[in-house]
C-alpha cells in the first residue's frame, strides 16, 4: 500500500515538474472577467506561433487587475473601466478593445428607446412603472450587478449620478442578468454588448442602436474601453504580445467573439 502510494506520488511530482515547462518565458495576465475569455483565446493563438512563451490568464475583476499589475503579481493587468483610478497612474495603459454596454429588456416589452435621463431615473427608482415611459401598466424590475463589478461601475460612470435603488435585484454575472431579464417580462438590466442574444432585447439609448457600427463611431454612448496595464514601459515578450493583440489577426479574434476592435 505504502509502496503504491510512493509510486503514485512520485509520478504526480514528475508530471507536475514536466508540466512546468522550464526554460520558457512566462508571464501572467489577471483582471477583468469580461475580457478574460478573449485574453485566453489570444494567449492560445500567440502560444501556438511562439512556443517559447507561456501565458497564464486569470480573472479576478478589474480592481484585481490594477492591483496585481501594481504589485507585480501579474505582468499584465486587465481592466474594463471608463476611467482608470488613481492607483493606475504609474501603469502603461493600452486600449486593446472596446465594449458596449447594452440596456436590455424582455422581448415582450414594447419599449424600443430610452433617453439617458430615463435610464438614470429607472435605476435610481424615480420611474417605477413602465406606463410612465409609454409602456404597459406594470412595475419595473431593475436588475443590476454587484458592487465592484467593472460593468456596473462603467455603467454608473457613463450614465452619471446613479444611486441604485434599494430593491433592485443583484446578479453576479452578465450571464445571470441575461437569464433574469429573459425570464421576467417587466425587468430591465444591462450587460456587455457581446452577450446579447435572441432571448433579450437591447434598447436604443438616445435613439442610437447598440450595434457595432455606432459603438465604434462613438454615437452610442454606453461604451467602455478595455485596458491592458503594464508596470513601467512596454518591452520584450510583453510588448510583442500586446502588439499581436493590436495586429489585424488579434483584432479579428476580438471582433469575431463579440467585442469591438480598439480602432
Amino acid at each position: 500500500m505504502f509502496r503504491k502510494f510512493c509510486v503514485f506520488t512520485s509520478f504526480l511530482i514528475i508530471v507536475l515538474v514536466i508540466g512546468c515547462g522550464k526554460g520558457k518565458t512566462s508571464f501572467t495576465m489577471a483582471g477583468s472577467t469580461a475580457f478574460q475569455p478573449f485574453a485566453e483565446k489570444l494567449a492560445d493563438q500567440y502560444m501556438v506561433s511562439h512556443p517559447e512563451v507561456a501565458i497564464t490568464v486569470q480573472g479576478g475583476g478589474s480592481a484585481v487587475g490594477i492591483q496585481s499589475a501594481n504589485s507585480g503579481a501579474a505582468q499584465i493587468g486587465m481592466a474594463d473601466l471608463v476611467k482608470l483610478p488613481e492607483e493606475a497612474k504609474d501603469l502603461t495603459a493600452t486600449v486593446v478593445a472596446k465594449d458596449g454596454i447594452a440596456i436590455v429588456v424582455n422581448p415582450q416589452n414594447k419599449i424600443i428607446n430610452l433617453t439617458t435621463d430615463q435610464v438614470r431615473d429607472i435605476f435610481n427608482g424615480k420611474i417605477n412603472n413602465w406606463k410612465e415611459i409609454g409602456g404597459v401598466d406594470a412595475p419595473i424590475t431593475v436588475v443590476s450587478r454587484e458592487a465592484g463589478s467593472g460593468t456596473r461601475s462603467s455603467f454608473e460612470q457613463v450614465v452619471g449620478n446613479i444611486n441604485l435603488k434599494k430593491d433592485a435585484l443583484i446578479q453576479d454575472s452578465n450571464g445571470t442578468i441575461r437569464e433574469t431579464v429573459a425570464n421576467d417580462v417587466n425587468s430591465v438590466g444591462y450587460l456587455s454588448h457581446g452577450l446579447i442574444n435572441e432571448k433579450i432585447k437591447p434598447l436604443k439609448v438616445d435613439e442610437q442602436e447598440c450595434i457595432s457600427e455606432s459603438i465604434v463611431t462613438g454615437k452610442y454612448k454606453l461604451v467602455r474601453p478595455i485596458f491592458l496595464l503594464v508596470k513601467g514601459s512596454l518591452n520584450g515578450e510583453i510588448k510583442n504580445f500586446i502588439d499581436f493583440i493590436l495586429s489585424a489577426d488579434g483584432q479579428q479574434t476580438i471582433k469575431s467573439n463579440g467585442l469591438l476592435p480598439a480602432k
Partner: peptide
C-alpha cells in the same frame, strides 16, 4: 459569495 471576487481592502 457575491462580492468576494471583486472586493479589495476594507471591503
Amino acid at each position: 459569495a457575491l462580492e468576494m471576487s471583486y472586493a479589495t481592502g476594507l471591503h
